[in-house]
Design a protein around this nucleic acid. Structure first.
Length: 405
RNA sequence: CGGGCUGUAGUGUAAUGGUAGCACGAGUCUUUUGGGAAGAUUUAGUCCGAGUUCGAAUCUCGGCAGCCCGACCA
């Protein structure tokens, strides 16, 4: 893509009302735009990153049997009354139709939709287990959204729901999801500082599990067992003072961002909606459910929080909007290289703008694409390569570049 | 939802009751071109509403909006 055709621009300074690093850098670099508190537009570069994260998530969901769907955001009150959450869930966005006077909710999570949906298809034990997920904007009436993409009122989430014949089968799948989540965080460049975390909220099991990425900007406090690489959320530390795995009491405190949360739901939602199946003996049983959330847009913010320097963002290669940032320092001098890389199918942002070198370098650092390629009169037929997270530059030939891709 | 702070041009920032100014950006022209270039010229602003006053960006009241702390957070 030619940078001259990108409609967004970078900002030299961050808007003064943005305090969070992720918001400052993402806005300055032209990845997102704020419409109102907790509600953001994904601009071209931001959407590219988000799409790459989604792609990784889809690949991993496919490996554990996930069927992808998209459920409605707009939902009838009746479903929410059935589970009692019309009144108990305080972050539920509710409104009344001007014409019909009917009440509606905007989906903050989708148990109230997926449970009646699967009731239409799960009749027998032969229809179990089932795994269904979606990637969709969620709406939550947060009393205080904050920190850029970390706590929004409208945000993108992957929500997976699993349906089982019994608790044992759920337990097995739940463990598989934990492994899959850790694999996804690793692929997203968060492997080194993301921990499976024991948390409250288990209605039918002692704990729920969160996935927490260590970052100062986080809202949570966790206690990490470095030996087992797991953590305990502060909210349950009074009842759980030692590592749940090894029993050790050497726990390290850290601030962290919740990047995923999974629950065993048992029959909490299947019962009110009559989601049940006939077993081998012909008896009716409630379907046993699990749900598994992952905040995609929050992940974009989290990655920026943990991967940046004073010049800008440093995207992990797996989710960078482009692989190469080709910067030409003389009009047209990079055109041939751009075409060659394009023809090879490489992901390249070509800075063909007529700006000073300093400005282009500053933008490249701010945007944070992994490999910066500079061509100028000075480089001749060679190409200067610099990794975003390194200070060293190297003059190489085209062959070396193509090996990088 | 309680508390605090803040709303001036696209962005940042001055003007403390008396001519709304500066920088960057953007437009035009010329010269430049390896870490945010130079000159000339143009462009664009006091969140909204009421009040006090000869006069309000500035003071008062109301509203709206944003940020931060806390509470909340399937």
């Amino acid at each position: 893509m030619k940078q001259s055709e990108l409609f967004t621009k970078t900002l030299r300074e961050a808007p003064k009302d943005e305090d969070a690093v992720n918001a400052q850098l993402l806005i300055r670099a032209g990845f997102i735009d704020k419409l109102m508190a907790g509600v953001y537009t994904m601009l071209p570069l931001g959407l590219m990153v988000r799409n790459k994260i989604e792609q990784i998530v889809r690949e991993e969901m496919a490996k554990i049997g996930g069927n992808e769907i998209v459920m409605p955001v707009l939902q009838p009150m009746a479903n929410w009354e059935k589970t009692g959450r019309w009144n108990s869930l305080d972050v539920l966005f509710k409104f009344t139709s001007y014409y019909t006077k009917n009440d509606y909710a905007l989906g903050p999570t989708h148990e109230e939709v997926i449970s009646p949906l699967l009731k239409k298809f799960i009749l027998s034990y032969k229809d179990l287990p089932r795994y269904v997920f979606q990637i969709q904007n969620k709406f939550r009436d947060e009393p205080r959204s904050k920190s850029g993409l970390l706590r929004g009122r409208e945000f993108l989430m992957k929500d997976l729901y699993s349906f089982h014949a019994n608790q044992k089968d759920l337990d097995k799948y739940y463990e598989l999801v934990i492994k899959t989540y850790m694999k996804m965080y690793k692929r997203l460049g968060l492997g080194g500082n993301t921990y499976v975390t024991f948390a409250s909220g288990g209605t039918f099991s002692k704990y729920s599990h969160e996935f927490q990425t260590v970052a100062d900007a986080g809202e949570d406090t966790i206690y990490i067992c470095d030996k087992c690489k797991i953590a305990v959320n502060k909210e349950i530390i009074k009842e759980q003072k030692v590592c749940p795995k090894c029993g050790g009491s050497k726990l390290r405190e850290a601030r962290s961002i919740e990047v995923g949360n999974i629950f065993k739901l048992s029959n909490k939602f299947s019962a009110p909606f009559g989601l049940s199946y006939r077993d081998e003996r012909g008896n009716m049983n409630d379907v046993v459910m699990g749900c598994y959330g992952m905040g995609i847009s929050r992940l974009v913010g989290t990655i920026v929080e943990v991967s940046h320097d004073d010049r800008g963002i440093i995207w992990p290669e797996s989710i960078a909007p482009f692989r190469f940032h080709l910067v030409e320092l003389r009009k047209g001098i990079g055109r041939d290289l751009y075409r060659r890389l394009q023809a090879k199918g490489d992901n390249v942002l070509y800075d063909d703008r007529e700006l000073s070198a300093g400005e282009k370098f500053a933008d490249a650092d701010l945007i944070g694409i992994p490999y910066r390629l500079v061509v100028s009169e000075k480089t001749g037929k060679k190409i200067e390569v610099k990794k975003r997270d390194s200070k060293n530059t190297k003059l190489v030939g085209y062959g070396t570049i193509s090996k990088l891709s």
